[in-house]
Every structure is written in structure tokens, then in C-alpha cells.
Computed example of a mutant assay.
Amino acid sequence: MPDLAHSLLRPLRWSERTLDAVIAPVVVTAMAALIGVITLQIVSRVFFTAVGWTEEVARFLLVWITFLAATLAFRRGRHIAVTFVVDALPGLPRRLARIAALLVALGFLLGLVVIGWEYMQVQSFQKSASLRLSMTWVYAVIPLSAAIMAWYALVDVIGLVLGEAHEPEEEAP
């Protein structure tokens, strides 16, 4: 059974690593862009006339960085959690408690996908003040990041059901 579980989980874990490998550089690039935009905003205000679009771009970048970085934190098990009771449980009860917690998180995340999608649709007619960008693009990160975290939770549930003792991955040194 362990070999079967491992072969079933291999493509799922590969998909997690692939998503992570795509999201991490996007977050780093967005952080660099955020630093650049804020620097431009400060320099332009001090020495010239303020550049109008910088505040809006900074705000939108911060929203996207927050949600996308949350997916990275979720995969690595870095979100706030009180685990001392679960950690104190022996084998099977610990695994069942982790499955239950992941199922609750999965339910929440799927709800967030639906609500985020609806909110994105409601705001689709609205344009941002400076850039005239459709607010759909700004709010699209909500259902996107919730769907990614839901996928991570689902893969972890499948792994625990199949008996894999998967701990959240640590960042590479």
C-alpha cells in the first residue's frame, strides 16, 4: 500500500511544487516592483510633482502580494495554528484530527472561491481611478489564491487518507 499511495501522490505533489515554483518568483518580482513604485512615489513627491498612479499601483501590488504569499505560507504550514493538542495525540487520532482540520479549511477556501468570484463579477464594471484598470483584475486574486490553497489542502487530505505522513514543507535553505 505505501508504494501505491506514493505513486498516486507523486503527480499531486509535483503539481504543488510546480505551483509553488511559479508563485514564488511572481511574489518576489511583485515585491521588487512594489519597492520601485514606492521609491518613485517618494522621490517624485520630494523633488518633483507627485506621480499620480504610483499610489494605486502600490495598493494593487500589495493586495496581490498578500494573497499570493498566503498560498506559499499555506503550503509550508506557516499560517497561525494552535497545534499542541493535535501534536499530543497518538498516530491515528492525530491523522484524523489533521484530516478534519484540513476539511474545515478546504470548506472555507471553497467558500472563498465562490464569494471571491461573485465579488469579482460585481466589481467588474468599476475602473480604477488613475489607471482605468478594470477592478476585475484587482479582485481576481481572491478566488485564484483561494483555489490554489484549496488544491493544497485537498492534496494534503488525500495524502493523509492514503497514510502518507506528510509534514508541511520547509523553505529551501
Results as ranks from 00 to 15, higher is better:
residue 59 R to H: 07
residue 60 F to N: 08
residue 61 L to H: 01
residue 61 L to F: 06
residue 61 L to W: 01
residue 62 L to F: 11
residue 63 V to T: 01
residue 63 V to D: 00
residue 65 I to A: 00
residue 69 A to S: 05
residue 69 A to N: 02
residue 70 A to N: 01
residue 70 A to Y: 01
residue 71 T to Q: 00
residue 72 L to P: 00
residue 73 A to V: 11
residue 75 R to I: 01
residue 75 R to N: 03
residue 76 R to I: 04
residue 77 G to S: 09
residue 78 R to I: 02
residue 78 R to M: 04
residue 80 I to M: 15
residue 82 V to Q: 07
residue 82 V to R: 05
residue 83 T to Y: 09
residue 83 T to W: 03
residue 83 T to R: 11
residue 84 F to V: 11
residue 85 V to G: 08
residue 86 V to R: 08
residue 87 D to G: 09
residue 88 A to E: 06
residue 91 G to K: 02
residue 91 G to I: 12
residue 92 L to F: 13
residue 93 P to L: 14
residue 93 P to Q: 05
residue 93 P to Y: 09
residue 95 R to F: 14
residue 95 R to G: 09
residue 95 R to W: 14
residue 95 R to V: 07
residue 95 R to L: 03
residue 96 L to G: 15
residue 97 A to F: 07
residue 97 A to Y: 08
residue 100 A to R: 07
residue 101 A to H: 11
residue 105 A to N: 05
residue 105 A to E: 05
residue 106 L to S: 03
residue 107 G to C: 03
residue 108 F to K: 04
residue 109 L to D: 03
residue 109 L to R: 01
residue 111 G to P: 05
residue 112 L to Q: 13
residue 113 V to Y: 14
residue 113 V to G: 11
residue 114 V to Q: 14
residue 116 G to N: 04
residue 119 Y to L: 10
residue 119 Y to Q: 08
residue 121 Q to E: 13
residue 124 S to Y: 11
residue 124 S to A: 11
residue 127 K to H: 03
residue 127 K to L: 13
residue 128 S to V: 05
residue 128 S to Q: 06
residue 129 A to D: 04
residue 129 A to G: 12
residue 130 S to E: 02
residue 134 S to F: 06
residue 134 S to K: 12
residue 135 M to H: 13
residue 136 T to I: 07
residue 136 T to E: 10
residue 139 Y to Q: 10
residue 140 A to R: 03
residue 141 V to E: 03
residue 142 I to S: 05
residue 143 P to A: 04
residue 145 S to H: 04
residue 146 A to L: 10
residue 147 A to I: 15
residue 148 I to H: 02
residue 148 I to K: 01
residue 148 I to R: 01
residue 150 A to L: 07
residue 150 A to K: 01
residue 152 Y to A: 02
residue 152 Y to I: 15
residue 153 A to G: 04
residue 154 L to V: 15
residue 155 V to I: 09
residue 156 D to C: 12
residue 157 V to A: 02
residue 162 L to V: 04
